[in-house]
């Protein structure tokens, strides 16, 4: 006689594990099938959205760079850098706009060992040819001469009234002295060009700061002359 409480009896007549396994199997197959069907669609949608997100991110980055570039350029426009001449020419130093370039043309090492010239201009220094002094923002020229000889060079134009002479007081907290300024047709080569030059005596030489570009006058007077100094 069969024991109705044996394990075998319980399994046969009790919980239907076989049916449960079949139900799980059918559901699992169904879900796997559903997943296989849905996966490519999900990938397609995901790829599209990610591509759109990447493009939007790139566009946002470009727009942000443009905003930040503007802010950075505004900061750069307010900053300055330092120019220092060689010790042989008085160790002249001054600040000038960060956005300017500078070029030392004569540095006392070539054939002309007594002259020193530096050209400054916004962006790029333009060719240092016959027109170079007119087209660049500022030209610094040191030569072995004296103020009397320079004054004689302007004598004729001053008599004609095309050049005006006045004294320029340099008082920037670091230097306190007076120079000579000539304004008007100061060029001996081109009577159509007008500008100004300020001369200072440095030991046995004369420093001249030439400017023919009206737009750069503020930077020259406020930044360059506001910070210039040298070893006397």
């Amino acid at each position: 006689m069969t024991n109705p409480y044996s394990d075998v009896y319980k399994e046969k007549k009790g919980f239907p594990f076989g049916a449960l396994a079949a139900i799980f199997a059918v559901l699992a197959v169904g879900l796997i099938g559903l997943s296989i069907w849905l996966y490519p669609q999900k990938e397609t949608v995901k790829t599209e959205v990610e591509a759109e997100a990447t493009a939007a991110a790139e566009q946002a980055r470009i727009e942000q760079i443009a905003i930040d570039q503007k802010a950075f350029d505004a900061e750069v426009a307010r900053t300055t850098k330092t120019f220092v001449s060689s010790a042989d020419f008085g160790s002249i130093s001054f600040e000038y706009p960060e956005t300017w370039s500078s070029y030392v043309d004569l540095d006392g090492t070539g054939k002309d060992t007594t002259s020193y010239s530096v050209y400054f201009n916004s962006g790029m220094v333009l060719p240092v040819d016959d027109k170079g002094i007119y087209s660049n923002a500022l030209v610094l020229f040191i030569q072995k001469t004296d103020l009397a000889a320079i004054d004689k060079g302007f004598e004729s134009n001053m008599k004609k009234g095309t050049v005006q002479k006045d004294s320029y007081a340099l008082s920037n907290g670091q230097m306190n002295l007076t120079g000579v300024r000539y304004s008007g047709n100061i060029s001996s080569k081109n009577k159509d060009k007008t500008g100004s030059v300020i001369y200072f005596r440095i030991r046995d030489k004369v420093l001249g700061l030439y400017s023919y570009v009206p737009a750069e006058q503020a930077a020259i007077y406020n930044i360059v002359l506001g910070t210039i100094r040298w070893v006397e």
């Binding site: 959205v49 997100a53 939007a56 991110a57 946002a60 980055r61 727009e63 942000q64 760079i65 930040d68």
Partner: peptide
Amino acid sequence: VAEAADDAKLEQA
């Protein structure tokens, strides 16, 4: 898309 753009903008800034 908006979140990606905002993140990129913030990171760049």
